[in-house]
Design a protein around this nucleic acid. Sequence first.
DNA 1: ATTGACGCTCAAAACGTTTTGGATTACCCG
DNA 2: CGGGTAATCCAAAACGTTTTGAGCGTCAAT
Lengths: 360, 360
Amino acid sequence: MSLRAIAKRLDLSVTTVSRALGGYPEVAADTRARVLAEATRIDYRPNQLARRLRHGRSEAIGLVLPAEAGQFGDPFFLRLLAALGPSLQRAGLDLLVMSARPGAEELRAYRHLVEGRRVDGMLLARTRRDDPRIRYLLDRNAIFVAHGRCEDPRPYAFLDIDGVAACRAATQRLIALGHRRVGLINAAPHYMFAHHREQGWRDALATADLPTGPLRAAEPSEEAGFTLMRALLAERDAPTAVLCATDRLAVGALHAVSQAGLRAGRDISLIGYDDLPIAGCTDPPLTTIEQPIARAGARMVQMLVALLRGADPATQHEIWPARLIPRGSDGPAPTRAGIATTTPNPVQGGRHDATRSDRA
Amino acid sequence: MSLRAIAKRLDLSVTTVSRALGGYPEVAADTRARVLAEATRIDYRPNQLARRLRHGRSEAIGLVLPAEAGQFGDPFFLRLLAALGPSLQRAGLDLLVMSARPGAEELRAYRHLVEGRRVDGMLLARTRRDDPRIRYLLDRNAIFVAHGRCEDPRPYAFLDIDGVAACRAATQRLIALGHRRVGLINAAPHYMFAHHREQGWRDALATADLPTGPLRAAEPSEEAGFTLMRALLAERDAPTAVLCATDRLAVGALHAVSQAGLRAGRDISLIGYDDLPIAGCTDPPLTTIEQPIARAGARMVQMLVALLRGADPATQHEIWPARLIPRGSDGPAPTRAGIATTTPNPVQGGRHDATRSDRA
DNA sequence: ATTGACGCTCAAAACGTTTTGGATTACCCG
DNA sequence: CGGGTAATCCAAAACGTTTTGAGCGTCAAT
């Protein structure tokens, strides 16, 4: 089960065996054939531990999952993981995954991977405006590709989705539908993506000479979306449309809407962001912004491979557009009269009867 | 940045330096102090590649995610990943993650990890009744812990949740609530957990001398739950209660129910399985069965560590109970009269009357 | 016949660590 | 003083691979 075993059996040197298997040209054809035959006979697999030491490379890259209560189970990361698989396999790279809570524990994980030479490079996602992980990696001259940007001025490799443009477009769509009070349920604003999405929303409102609508932010979970939306609806001057920075927030918001006896897409418009699988089968199906996570993951691996081959990080960045997927959760702004008729029927009282009477 | 560097600088041998840092007793106190000082001065970190080769262990374990359309993004695995983190860190193990489609690609991933000596052991989840992964690992004498069982008679280490008991209890609960036609929306039956859950459901019905209700199965996704539930509701003899083998199925089913103009928990009872975060904020909140994924993940790591230390796989298996969490999606079976009162006002009419008249 | 080139092969070094099997002192006790 | 023992330390081997530098025939060109 080692080169030496094959060498001994064929009365060759390990050098020749190594070269025969490695496909080097300076080995005689019949020798190579003999080696190959013996190798398949004993089902030889090179010991990765040995070749890694020899090469000084671990042939692996790392990814640290945020194990935060709010993020816990965010489908984004699982989709990213699944997307990474094939590209990594093609590049011959393994993937080391750790989970850590943002903060000191998170940085320990990065140090563990990078300084223990467990990985040749890192991938990271959900960048933050001031991101200590990127700061650390830049300080150490480590190789990495970020999904999203941060505000560190130094050059680094990243792939980002243009959240500003996407949310500007989504907000403009709502404005075009006649909405004048467009709210935003945002993720925590220290996330760069949340900052961008908010910026797009502000842009569109400012361009249309509309006041910025109500803004709420929290960790992007269903619960948070539910709570924040309920709060928005209870306000005196509730918005007629709300942009949600993630689909998880939007799903929660959708529940708050239906629990309030309102009908999304008619009484109030909702637009999400991510196009999670669940977005297609909510009631009504969620209008949302599609993020090409799978393609992004694949491209990030390509960029990382380029960096490992010596490419300049300053040349490795791309910003991709996102695509709005119109479904049923948004629609024309209700007129004043319209709002009056869509409020719950006082006779029936129950919230779900109201929903039905809306439809009838 | 290596033992030799420290040794050279302090005029010691690498042996002594290694021992000083490793905490071996045969090194003088002041020597050790000097070594430690120098080590921290140059921020020495042992090269993992080297020590792994030397030890013949990779200090890592592997996990292969199913990258199947239906499973894509199943929160189960992300929760498992997050749960594994702390335990693995404590055990000094890294986690290698691959993604592969079930079938040949999946087995290639296992061979890649195991035969390339990239990992010391494997974790696997979502076992199947006839599980080629377990067969492979057993054939190769590889070390692994399974979450769930399979039908291979050979002894192996596993941790399972007692789905039979849980689903029996859930079904009994529905029966006690007066339901006589209790359906099951199951995951694909080649999954062991689906088989178990079905068995619990059958047990309870048989014990209560009730006919087995309608049974449907598919990959456990929201869409599938939606589609199957809609089909069940359209049947002539629709069930008054439906047990769903996973929360994702239940969430889809919930949407089908509300889209049919029915109210879960009153017109029809639904019970899920998993207690996903989303289960708490559906409308109504989902009665479900809690699976202690986090604790299970931690325990599986413990078992794996025991195996790596030489424990006998035959001694490493546990079956844990699951806990039913009553929330709002189930309730008393509607009486004939009761159904009439809870059906929507006939004046309002609508497309779902057909379904309702079946049940009336 | 000598030189050079080519084809094939090998021994040895290297990667950085841990471990084995001494070696060298110093010390104590008889 | 000799012999045993403890306390320190070290050189070298080992893990299994890749790579370096060189060796040795054979053959063609000089």
